[in-house]
Computed example of a mutant assay.
Amino acid sequence: MKITLITVGKIKERFFEAAIEEYSKRLSRYCRLEILQVADEKTPDGAKEALERQIREKEGERILSHIRDGAYVIALAIEGKQLSSEELAARINRLGVEGKGQLVFIIGGSLGLSKAVMNRADYHLSFSPMTFPHQLMRVILLEQIYRSFRIIAGEPYHK
């Protein structure tokens, strides 16, 4: 199975990069992982809703340009469905059994995801009603994907 993370913006802190590298290495045993970063748009302070929408749309176009036909797309969104680790593992496993060869997880920028991206997504996943820094969310998502593969394989993983 191929797992692709499409994220908006670059990682700025070395400690996040180190965590991402570690989970990428661990995941290489279970799947082919690809992490794509698209450029984020600068948002001026006090931006009006129309400008924020334009920014989401620009970032959304960049995201959508990387999604292949046939990919199963999971968008991370506060309003999405919250799952336990076991439920996420079961979903990933079921998608693999159904022949979905590519799963794409999308983490938007600071303004969230465009309507076009949300409409393209096959599933909306929420980790919490809280907002997390986008760089930290990459680490959390990779850890949960790794945990999912450990659960699927029946291998121990700390709780």
Rank of each mutant, 00 (worst) to 15 (best):
residue 8 V to P: 02
residue 9 G to L: 15
residue 9 G to Q: 13
residue 14 R to I: 12
residue 14 R to A: 12
residue 15 F to I: 05
residue 15 F to R: 01
residue 16 F to Y: 14
residue 18 A to N: 13
residue 20 I to Q: 02
residue 24 S to H: 06
residue 27 L to F: 08
residue 28 S to P: 01
residue 29 R to I: 06
residue 30 Y to D: 08
residue 30 Y to R: 11
residue 31 C to G: 03
residue 31 C to P: 04
residue 33 L to V: 02
residue 33 L to G: 04
residue 37 Q to M: 15
residue 43 T to A: 14
residue 44 P to Q: 03
residue 44 P to M: 11
residue 47 A to E: 02
residue 48 K to A: 15
residue 48 K to P: 15
residue 49 E to N: 03
residue 50 A to Q: 14
residue 50 A to F: 14
residue 52 E to A: 12
residue 52 E to Y: 06
residue 52 E to S: 10
residue 54 Q to N: 12
residue 55 I to R: 09
residue 58 K to S: 10
residue 58 K to N: 09
residue 62 R to I: 00
residue 68 R to K: 13
residue 70 G to V: 06
residue 71 A to S: 05
residue 71 A to G: 02
residue 71 A to Q: 03
residue 76 L to I: 00
residue 78 I to C: 01
residue 78 I to H: 00
residue 83 L to A: 03
residue 83 L to E: 05
residue 85 S to D: 13
residue 85 S to I: 13
residue 86 E to K: 14
residue 89 A to Y: 07
residue 94 R to E: 11
residue 97 V to P: 05
residue 97 V to T: 11
residue 98 E to D: 14
residue 103 L to T: 10
residue 104 V to M: 02
residue 106 I to R: 01
residue 106 I to F: 09
residue 108 G to K: 03
residue 109 G to K: 11
residue 111 L to P: 02
residue 113 L to G: 00
residue 115 K to G: 01
residue 117 V to Q: 01
residue 117 V to S: 00
residue 117 V to T: 02
residue 118 M to Q: 04
residue 118 M to I: 06
residue 119 N to F: 12
residue 121 A to R: 04
residue 122 D to A: 08
residue 122 D to G: 11
residue 123 Y to F: 14
residue 126 S to N: 06
residue 130 M to W: 08
residue 130 M to T: 06
residue 131 T to N: 03
residue 135 Q to G: 12
residue 136 L to C: 04
residue 138 R to G: 10
residue 139 V to S: 08
residue 140 I to N: 10
residue 142 L to W: 04
residue 148 S to Q: 11
residue 148 S to F: 10
residue 148 S to G: 13
residue 149 F to S: 10
residue 151 I to E: 10
residue 152 I to M: 13
residue 157 Y to G: 13
residue 157 Y to W: 15
residue 158 H to C: 09
